[in-house]
Simulated assay, not measured.
Amino acid sequence: MQTAVGVFGGEACTDETSVPPLMNAGVGDSDRQAISSLNAPPFIAVELCREHLGVHPCDKRRSITDYRHMFPAIDFSLIENDEDILWKPDIREKNEEVAARGLKFLEWLWTRKEKEIAVVTHSGFLFHSLSAFGNDCHPTVKSEICTHFANCELRSMVVVDKGMIGSDESSTNYSGKIPYGLDLPSDVADENHIGNGN
């Protein structure tokens, strides 16, 4: 949440606004000032969108009561339990379980009406979730999808629901057409395009 607020949050808070801060001053034992929610996008905490669960204390979350105090403008309404009931001290979540949780998160993401959504989470969660996709793509594209994220890396992806192709109304900003030809990465496709004399 600190990363999300640092990247997408507003300016430092001033006493002149009546909106709650996204993050209060000093969160995480830092010397950071409070960060304003003024002119910031909405922030929603989603329990599914977490790092590998279990064993490691750093992967256990605090209570939602604590988080609400630290991050007053973040919406925690989708989280049902105040305490972390998913993290187990003696059982580490299997990679397949992380991927399944990731797929559930993506199913929830499909229900959103927004066309542009930033997902701020941990690289392990993204790696295992995205590895479940792209089996029908060119191997180079599949490799790009499954590449580990670097620390604080931002990637832009377009997610297409093939079930919406041909419908009159799309819930995304994708036109709903499948490109002609092989599903190649853009640099390979450009080489092929130039090599064919086109």
Rank of each mutant, 00 (worst) to 15 (best):
M70W: 13
S129G: 06
F105P: 01
G181E: 08
C13N: 05
L130G: 06
A150W: 07
G134Q: 04
N135A: 06
A189S: 15
P185A: 12
V141M: 08
V120A: 04
W108P: 02
S167T: 15
A45F: 13
K142W: 00
I79Q: 12
G54D: 02
K177F: 14
S167C: 12
S129I: 00
G134M: 06
K115T: 05
P21R: 07
R155M: 01
W110M: 11
V188Y: 11
G195M: 13
S37W: 04
H138Y: 09
G102N: 03
P20Q: 13
I178P: 04
K88F: 06
C49R: 00
I178A: 13
E144A: 13
E47R: 15
I145W: 03
H193F: 15
Y180K: 11
S143K: 14
D75I: 10
N192D: 09
K177R: 10
N39F: 12
V120N: 02
E107Q: 15
T65I: 07
I91S: 07
V46T: 08
V160L: 09
V120L: 02
R61K: 06
F149V: 03
Y174M: 02
I91P: 03
L78Y: 09
V159P: 05
N151F: 06
L86M: 05
S175N: 10
E80W: 10
N39E: 14
E51F: 04
G6Q: 10
R155P: 05
H56Q: 10
V27Q: 01
C152M: 11
D29E: 08
E153V: 02
M157N: 05
D190H: 12
A189V: 03
E11L: 04
D168S: 14
A73P: 12
G10Q: 10
S37R: 03
E144H: 13
E83R: 15
I85P: 01
I145M: 09
R101P: 06
I85Y: 02
D59I: 01
F149E: 00
M1D: 02
D59F: 03
G6P: 02
D190S: 15
L86G: 00
V55A: 04
G10V: 06
A100I: 03
L86D: 02
D31P: 03
G10W: 04
G195R: 11
R101V: 09
M164G: 09
P185Y: 08
E169P: 03
E116H: 15
W87A: 00
P185I: 08
F105T: 00
L103D: 02
T65Q: 08
V158S: 07
I91Q: 10
G124E: 05
P72A: 09
P139R: 07
A118H: 13
T65V: 12
N95S: 14
V119A: 03
N135D: 13
L48N: 01
P57V: 03
Y67A: 11
E51Y: 10
K94Q: 05
E114D: 15
K162W: 11
K115Q: 10
I178G: 06
S167N: 15
A100G: 12
S170K: 13
G54I: 04
S175C: 11
L78Q: 13
K88H: 15
V27K: 03
H122R: 01
